[in-house]
Simulated assay, not measured.
Amino acid sequence: MTRLSFLDQVPVVEGGSLCSALANAADIAAHCEALGFHRYWVAEHHGMPGIGGAATSVVLAHIGHATSTIRIGSGGIMLPNHSPLQIAEQFGTLDALFPGRIDLGLGRAPGSDQRVAMAMRRGLQSDHNAFPRDVVELQAYFAGDPNLGFTATPGAGADVQMWILGSSTFGAQLAAHLGLPYGFASHFAPGMMDEAIEIYRSHFRPSQYLSKPYVMVGFNVFAADTQEEANYVASSMQQGFIALRTGQPGKVKPPVRGYYESLPPQAQAMLDDVLSVSAVGPADKVAADLQAFIRRTRADEIIVTSQIFDHAARKRSIAIAAEAFGMLAETV
């Protein structure tokens, strides 16, 4: 049966603070745990005023203390920003704190623009082979490979589940080659999803980590008790994408009624494309959209995200997503 998980971008809203965003993240994680979600992930982004998960491993330590059973992890760590040894130490520490619960999703994008990438890792090279090498090096640290000449402490022997994430076919090929689970960022970059999933499944090589392909796909949910209210809460995310595409990223904006309808056709078309993997509506609409998406992708896991301004409305959306998913329990 398909699993349900949650991706949190730790939204920092207009009029709010990073402190309140982190408190809300812990509350959301506990909420997801109580609703039966399989895992809770935090995404690494930098230089974005509306996203509070930049220090991802620190945020996960905060989340771990607010939960007890749900798996927690990165969706993902942008490995080019870091040395593999540092990530081995950070996630080895998380595994020591919360044993058997830690996931490490890895991506090769910088999580912002090249100015931030250079500030994060000043020796950054535009070498397409660097990411695969770094992933293999990271695996060696967790395995305690004696050829390294030293032991990553913490890190060696940690029970960390590694994933390859992506929004193109590159990550699919790497995940298949290494025999690792694969997550596709269809919640904001759906264009190459079907092709990437097919490449991953058809080229998958069984490994010590995984015997058969395992696919996770991202899915936006903007749910409420009525269609009108769901359209309303979705407008914050729509405003965010318009701001990002026009070079004006900021904090998460309050929702605006009729926002989508007020946009010119070109902006509507952009939103229709980037948010095409979404469900907006009450529980029955969300259930129908989820079912169609699962049939299309045959995904092993759906990781939903709900970038909503109001914290209570966001919790309600997540609860409706869980309710909708429960409607499919006997059919997926």
Rank of each mutant, 00 (worst) to 15 (best):
V135C: 12
P154F: 10
S168A: 13
R71L: 11
A66E: 03
L94N: 05
F170T: 14
G157H: 03
G155H: 06
I87D: 03
A172E: 04
L178K: 05
L165Y: 02
S126T: 13
G171L: 02
G64W: 12
G105F: 02
I72W: 12
G123P: 07
G76H: 07
Q139A: 06
L165D: 02
S68Q: 15
V160F: 11
G166T: 03
R71C: 06
P80V: 12
Q86P: 04
A158L: 08
P110N: 03
L60K: 13
A117Y: 06
L104V: 00
L104F: 00
S112P: 03
I70R: 08
Q173R: 15
A117K: 12
P146R: 15
I87S: 07
I87R: 11
H128L: 14
S126W: 09
D145I: 08
G179N: 12
G123M: 03
L148S: 11
G73T: 01
D145F: 06
S68F: 08
F150K: 15
A109D: 04
R71M: 09
A66D: 01
V116H: 12
V136I: 14
M78S: 07
I87P: 08
F98V: 01
D145V: 07
P146I: 04
N81L: 05
P132W: 11
S126M: 14
T169P: 03
E137R: 15
G166N: 02
D113L: 02
A175V: 11
L174F: 05
Q86G: 13
V135A: 10
T69W: 04
L165C: 03
G166I: 07
L85M: 12
T67W: 08
V135P: 12
G179Y: 07
L85Q: 10
P80Q: 02
L94C: 06
A152G: 10
G75K: 03
T93F: 01
F142W: 14
R108D: 05
R122A: 15
T151N: 12
A119I: 09
V135F: 14
H62L: 13
W163L: 08
I87C: 07
A117Q: 06
Y141M: 07
G92W: 00
A143L: 10
S68R: 15
H62T: 05
G144F: 07
R122Y: 10
A152C: 13
H82S: 09
L178G: 08
L106S: 00
P80F: 09
A88F: 04
S168N: 02
F91L: 03
A176I: 05
L178Q: 09
W163G: 05
L165E: 01
L148V: 08
A140C: 08
L104N: 01
